[in-house]
Amino acid sequence: MRVVMFGYQTWGHRTLRALLDSEHDVVMVVTHPKSEHAYEKIWSDSVADLAEAHGVPVAIRNRPDDEELFAQLKEADPDVIVANNWRTWIPPHIFGLPRHGTLNVHDSLLPKYAGFSPLIWALINGESEVGVTAHMMNDELDAGDIVLQQAVAVGPADTATDLFHKTVDLIAPVTVGALARIAAGETGFTPQNRADATFFHKRAEEDIRIDWTWPAETLERLVRAQSAPYPSAFTHHRGKRLEIVSAVVSEARYGGTPGRIFYREGDGVVIVAGPDARTGRNRGLAVTRVRTEDGRELPATAYFTSMGGYLTARP
């Protein structure tokens, strides 16, 4: 089939790589310009560079809604558009242009975690598995019929970086497998149950600020979700920003006020956590490594030289 590919960053790059290695003919690529957004500088393999290296025409757009691009797409005469990590709305006159429509590849197990940053949100929320879904695009966000879906388990120590590597390896088999079904003339794909749909926004500074009233189990997952190269989860100590690089849930239960710097346990320093921490029924977050405002990374036991005082959301 003749394929036009819409995509960006490493997700788009992996998709384009799979298409170039397949039996299909990539006739055009549309990608976004480089961005200075913190999250868009992560996993930033260039779709444009890969396309140009293989002699594929490239159009660079923030939004695909101009007449010039539409004319180029019509001239490319695609059988199908494949999209992965396209960051803005694709209008119906474009996603409906190809003979077989548009296949969107999304890094979640739809209908859950539609929208942005699905792996990070899924890890924070304690999901047991994540994955990749190829679905036909329609007027709603990540809502079309599912053509192919594959899942991988979330391990007890997995970081968002680990999950990225697990799921990015699914892009090629899911994309090529879905195209095989389309090329074979199949149309009876699986409708999504919209009652199960959840939608998530892009990550921002406020989303990595630690709230010590959250349960320690959730905070431990937040720290893993904000693993390098993502910005670390942070709090404040004595008015200065303090990043939490690694942490575990405490073995013992600790009572008091959320955010209290309480006790050394093993290789960590326990911070009281949870909405009902006063009851003493909660485990705390045992912080093991921190990064200071000036960029120094050190063991929490070396940073917290005495117990007492509080970690706070704001300076």
Results as ranks from 00 to 15, higher is better:
R2D: 08
V3H: 03
G7C: 10
G7S: 04
W11S: 00
H13N: 07
R17S: 15
D21P: 07
H24E: 08
T31H: 07
H37F: 11
H37I: 09
K41C: 09
A53Y: 01
A59L: 12
R61W: 07
D65E: 07
E67R: 15
E68C: 01
L69W: 08
A76R: 00
D77C: 10
P78Y: 02
D79F: 04
V80R: 14
V82M: 13
V82G: 15
N84G: 12
N85V: 00
R87C: 10
T88F: 14
W89H: 14
W89P: 14
I90C: 05
P91I: 11
P91F: 14
H93G: 14
H93R: 14
P98N: 10
R99F: 09
H100D: 15
L109T: 13
P118K: 09
I120A: 12
A122Y: 02
G126W: 10
E129H: 10
V130C: 15
V132D: 09
V132P: 05
E140W: 13
A143K: 01
Q149Y: 09
Q149G: 10
Q150K: 13
P156Q: 12
A160Y: 10
T161G: 03
D162I: 02
H165Y: 15
H165V: 00
I171E: 07
V176L: 12
G177N: 01
A183C: 01
A184H: 00
G188H: 07
R194L: 08
T198V: 03
F200E: 02
F200T: 00
T213L: 08
P215Q: 10
P215D: 12
E217S: 11
E217L: 14
T218G: 15
E220R: 11
E220K: 08
R221G: 06
R221D: 08
V223S: 09
A225W: 03
Q226K: 00
S232A: 15
H236N: 01
E243C: 04
I244V: 15
V245W: 01
S250E: 03
A252I: 13
R253M: 08
R260D: 11
R264S: 14
E265M: 08
D267S: 13
V270S: 06
I271C: 03
I271K: 01
A273N: 02
A273K: 01
D276H: 12
L285K: 03
L285V: 06
L285T: 05
V287G: 01
V287H: 06
T288G: 00
V290Q: 01
V290S: 05
D294F: 06
G295A: 11
L298C: 06
P299R: 12
Y303M: 09
Y303I: 02
T305D: 15
S306R: 15
M307P: 06
M307C: 02
G308T: 04
G308P: 06
G308E: 11
T312M: 06
R314W: 05
P315F: 05
